[in-house]
């Protein structure tokens, strides 16, 4: 297996976006790309990352391999790469290590690191293609700010989607808060658009703690998609055009 990115910055951001939620995980490498699927320790949230082979500078995977890696260790290794350095990952069949090589574009500096692989028993969940009741596309910075703001007031947020707006509400010991975002078009700046596709109105409650973990992916993507159906986990997708995506799933809280 050998994969090369032109710039380390995307991979750094991917690892930063998921490492605090899942810790150790397995990267599944096939000839179509690298992916991981992992739940957090409480089995409430799930991360699914796909990095498509087309998004790499060069990519080769002769035999499918699953590489168990501590994401904190991977983050440490990637700290040694400059944002504009190229990154090459190499793994040979049956080897218990993965190699990282970072090269500056003027080629005057090359650094190499070897990371020990881990045996990880991953429990994969089958996630069926779902027709969601409501899909909201919005700037990822708006979601990050909304979740951070409301976290000051409560632990949970109720997200309610109607035809032309989406409302985030919370309450806690010191008071209550809500943020309403209305659909708005923008032909010249599509990344600032708020688009709501509603088949059925939805209202779901989620733990803000996890949403705040998810919005660590905001530096990867200007836009985010919230896909919701009543009594179903939320899917939060950060698309990375031509590269792949990060999707997070979060189980709702239900009233007893």
């Amino acid at each position: 297996f050998e994969a090369k990115w032109d710039h380390a910055s995307t991979l750094k951001k991917v690892i930063d976006a998921v490492k605090d939620l899942i810790g150790d995980t397995s990267w599944d490498c096939t000839n179509t790309g690298m992916s991981l699927q992992s739940m957090d320790s409480s089995h409430v949230a799930l991360v699914h990352v796909l990095l498509k082979s087309e998004g790499f500078e060069s990519y080769r995977c002769d035999r499918n391999v699953s590489m168990g890696i501590s994401l904190n260790s991977m983050a440490k290794v990637l700290k040694c790469a400059g944002n504009d350095d190229s990154v090459t990952l190499r793994h040979e069949s049956e080897s218990s290590v993965v190699n990282f090589a970072f090269e500056s574009h003027k080629e005057e500096r090359v650094s190499e690191f070897e990371l020990k692989l881990m045996n990880i028993d991953t429990e994969h969940l089958g996630i069926p293609e779902t027709e969601y009741d409501s899909i909201i596309k919005m700037p990822s910075a708006d979601l990050r700010r909304t979740c951070a703001d409301l976290s000051q007031f409560g632990d949970s947020v109720t997200i309610s989607c109607a035809k032309s707006d989406v409302r985030f509400e919370t309450s806690g010991d010191i008071g209550t808060g809500n943020v309403r975002l209305s659909a708005r078009g923008s032909s010249d700046k599509p990344e600032t658009e708020i688009a709501i596709e509603m088949i059925n109105p939805v209202s779901l409650t989620f733990a803000l703690k996890y949403l705040n973990f998810f919005t660590k992916a905001a530096p990867l993507s200007d836009t985010v998609k919230l896909c919701m159906s009543n009594n179903h986990p939320l899917c939060v997708e950060f698309p990375m055009p031509e590269v792949g995506y990060i999707r997070y799933y979060l189980a709702p809280k239900i009233d007893e």
Partner: peptide, 14 residues
């Protein structure tokens, strides 16, 4: 009273 559900209640373990 809100209860946090787990993902296995919605998705099947493979």
């Amino acid at each position: 009273q809100e209860t946090q559900t787990r993902l296995e209640s919605y998705f099947t373990v493979q």
